[in-house]
Structures are given as structure tokens and as C-alpha cells.
Write a protein that binds this DNA or RNA. Sequence first.
RNA 1: GCGCCUGUAGCUCAGUGGAUAGAGUACUGGCCUCCGAAGCCAGGGGCCGCUGGUUCGAUUCCAGCCAGGCGCGCCA
Length: 577
Amino acid sequence: MSADPKTLLADLLRQALNSVAPDHVDTPIVLERPKQASHGDFSSNLALQLAKPMRRSPRDLAALLMAELPASPQVAKVEVAGAGFINFTLVADAKTSVVNAVLSQRERFGRGAATGTKVMIEFVSANPTGPLHVGHGRGAAYGASLASVMDFAGHTVAREYYVNDAGRQMDILALSTWLRYLANFDITVPFPPNAYQGSYVVDMGGEIRNAHGDRFAKVTAEQVLAGVCSVEDDKEDHLDGLIANAKRLLGEDYAWIHDFALTEQLGDCREDLEGFGVPFDKWFSEKSLFDTGLVERAVTALEQQGHIYVQDGAKWFRSSTFGDEKDRVVQRENGLFTYFASDIAYHLNKYERGFDRIIDIWGADHHGYIPRVRGAIAALGLPTEKFEVALVQFAVLYRNGQKAAMSTRSGEFVTLRELRKDVGNDACRFFYVLRKSDQHLDFDLDLAKSQSNENPVYYIQYAHARICSVLAQWNGVERDLLDAELARLDGERELALCARLAAFAEVIQSAAADYAPHQVAFYLKDLAGEFHSWYNAERMLVDDEALMIARLALAAAVRQVLVSGLALLGVSAPTSM
RNA sequence: GCGCCUGUAGCUCAGUGGAUAGAGUACUGGCCUCCGAAGCCAGGGGCCGCUGGUUCGAUUCCAGCCAGGCGCGCCA
């Protein structure tokens, strides 16, 4: 089979353009698949584009182009339509040959040629201070699907999770754990309202007691509260005072508690994500950026470039000269680096690892953070065009028609694990990715739970199961389908299915380019829909052997693309349901 | 106040500088003696938020308004 039809038609149009309008040979040639079958298999608006510069009517130009179009055995019909569109209808062979391509290339069908581009996608990166909730789930599903789609499109993709193991939030978790542990020994310190309330913290306290007895309990409540301001005065100062006391009273044991809590929560998080079909190639530690001195090196580099100044004892990065609305502190008055400083170091590290494209997936609430990171990258003299942020809008959970509160610290949230258990991994992954990332997602928990059978994922899986069932009843050798007489596929629905299959690679490329894995989900819905429609209209297991083989070949091709597409979204393709 | 996202059928959402703006759901009516009815077929339902601008052509691009969400820390 020669070049794909789209490339062929573009070549033909280019030749026609060369003779009709040599001065305009650089006009981009756009071929699209018309929505309506009556408009042919491909349509070009070339004549409409040329109308203005050439000062001729679009329809006249279309007729001229058509007259100069070289003949091709693949093209059955060319016509001028509407305002001046040139519509192409392919011969049946050119349409059905895709079936053979799918069956011979199998899971490689639709895969883009290797681009050699190294892409890093960093996503989820939630603080390991508690279970992942449904908001994190969206970032996880989106990131994992995008990574798979970009990989399939031909890029080399690295998936990474940035572990915030160095900040105050981890200290709050360590303190929370310790206080819960102390309660086992009747050392009762009022639990701060802004500490981590979840029952998992109580559990961790219990585990430490079981394993180590009173090793960390050689204190009194008075010592823990010594010199700490009251909650009423300032609850954040109150918390910081307790943390300082904990560090002082526990000495080296503080690090033990801190690391225990971190390891527990990170392990829980990793296990949850793996169960969700969201793997990572690397879990990058924020703390390691300090250990290797990269944070200091990054700030020093900015300083040497003259982008840092000192004010009120703190070091400020002049991000306002790089488009940010104001300057930002990188090192506080107390000498501690800010989260922003380690983030600058992290991005420096990403560049130093030689990625061509660095994609961060953030929650939409972090959008204000983009200019300062981009500014820091620019200030370090690094190419900012390699850096992109994909914002994922909030997933708002509804329960009983009411917006449900979601806060890790308050402990009032629905965990990703609960959601997965309720609606299943497949429906969960699919539901999350069924919307554009910049669209707010209303996650109706009651609907997802009670009517999960109405989730479109089952519609697609059902098409797959049906095909498996028919092929099983045929009980033939699937290799024989490669020799099918595809000319027997001449029905309207069959040719439409072939066209849909042929569009798979285009959908992959588009989804990868637009960071829009939802396009794959909608494509699969369309493909499944066209299959169901055909299935109801025609029988596959017919007496006419050649016709049966041709139809089974088409069905097998549909099955292959369903499997490939669902795999990209992390959804299974069961043979029966 | 400034910044980002959103506004399309009753509801949840796709989509496009172009031809009659689509799907699911809900509602109405049909289709299993025949490969899986978690399916199919048919029907009604729309100032594509409003007002201007660019264009041969705008629901799409631009500006301004209106409405909703989110953000604007020496937090992470």
C-alpha cells in the first residue's frame, strides 16, 4: 500500500496548485475528514483560501484546481461543493486496506514514528501527608494518560513524582503522629485544629507504640506545651511552637518519627497509584536537592546574574523583571530556603538531565505560580520554551447534591482509594479523562456509585466483549483474516468504520500535541458507537464464507484499536462482562 | 482590584474560521424464534452568555461587559 490517502491527496492538490497558481504554491494544504458522509472522505478548503489573494471566486478556483488535478487510482470522485470546497471520495480499496494494516501491525497500529524527543512529565506530586483524595485522582489519571499518549505518539517519556519531603507540612505530620502516639500513654496535649486530623495519623501512632513501646514517650504534656502560644492567639504559631518543642525533646528521635510518617504515607500513596494503573519512573526527593547542594547552587547562580537582592533580611528573586507581578522570596530572614527556592533547583535539575520538553501538571489553584517558575528558568539562562505547565481544573465532589468539603488537614475528604473501590478503576480512570483538563469536573459521587452501569466506559468495553464473543463462536484461525477479501466490505457502515480506524493515528497525534487525552476517550466512544450500529444492522457469521471472513477481519481490527486505545487510558478490555 | 479557567440542548459535556452546531442522559415511540438488548433505530428539544470589531464567512479569533470557579504569603 502506498502513502496514506491524506498525504496522497495533499500531493495531488499541490501539483494542481502549481499549475493553477504558481505564485501561491506555499499555501498550506489542509485536508479534513468532513462530518457528513455526503461530503466525501476528505475535503479541502484550498480554493477558499486562495480566493482573496487571487481575487477570484472560490468556486471558479475550485473548478480550475479540479481540472488540473492529476488522476489517481485511489481517488474515485472529486467534486466542488458548497462555497468552494473540493471534496474527495476514495475508491473502496483505499478505505478498506486499513483493516489489513491494523491486523498486521496489531498493537503497533497507530503508533507514531520515534521522534527522539525526550519528554518529562511531572504530576500528582502531592504532599505525602495523607491519603490521596479525588482531586489528586484527576491529576493522576490525566498525567498517566497523557504520558501514555505521548509515548504512543513517538516521544520518549519519563514520568516523575516530586516528593515534598523537606517542608513544614511534613513537620506538621510528624508532630501530629507524635501527639497521637503520646495519647496512648495518657500524655494528653490538646490536638491542634490545624494539625492532621485523619484517623490514619492515629493509626500510625498506634503502630509506633506497638513496635517501640514508650521509647518516644519520656515527656510530659507540660514539656510539650512549654513556651507555646495559645491556639487562640495564633494557631499557626501554636503549631510551630509545638514542632520546635518536639524537635528539642525528641532530639535524634524526631527524625525517626518524621521518616516513619513519611515512609508510611509515601508507601501508601505509591501503592494507591500503582493500583490505579499510574506508574512513575522516578520519585524525586525535594530533600535531595538540599543534600546535594543544588538549592544553594541555583540561588547562587541567580545571585551571580544579578537577579537577587536583599530586603528585610530576606533574599528576593527579581521575578517581576521576568513577567511576574512581584518579586519573590527565595531565602527567608531566618535563613531557611522557601519552597520556591527548591522548586527552582528542581527545574534546574530537570534541564540538566537533558529533557527536550518539561511538562508540569498542576492543579489550577497553582496557576499564579507559573510566571515565577518560568521567570527563574529564564533568569538561569535556560530555554523557557521547553517548559510547559498543563493546568488541571478542580474536581469538585458532589454528595447528595451538595458540594463536599475536601481538605486533607481537616480529614474530611473522599480518598481516591474509596472512590476506586466504589466505582472501579476502569470507570474512575475513564470518567476523569472524559473532560478537557481545563474544564471544571463535577464528580457526582452518588451518580458514579448508583449508576455506574451508565458510565460510557462500559459502552466501549461492551463493544470489545461482543467482538470477542463473535470471534470465539467463529472458532477459526485469526491469521486467516489477513487474507480477507476486503472488497466485500462495501456497506455504508463498514466503510465508515474503516475511515474511523484510519483516523486513529491522527487522533493520537492531535491528543499528544494538545495535551488532550480526552480526545482518545471520545474517539473510542465514536468507534464503539459505529461498531454497535453496524453490529445491529448486519450479521457477521453468515454462510457466505468470503463475506464472513471480511466482516470478521473488520471486527478484529476494531477490537485491536479498542484495546490499544483503552490501554492508553489505563482502562481494561475484558473479553466478557 | 489584578491574573488564569469556564459559559453550547432540561442536565453532563464534545466540537469547528466554512457546508444543516453534535454525543450521552432525560423524555416519547419502535427493534431480541437470528453472532451478547450494558445494544440498535426514530422523534422533539439550541439568540453556541451579551455587545461591538476583524473577515467573503465568527459559535470559533480580538476587545469590552455580565455570570460562575480558582488564585494573588518570608505556606507548600
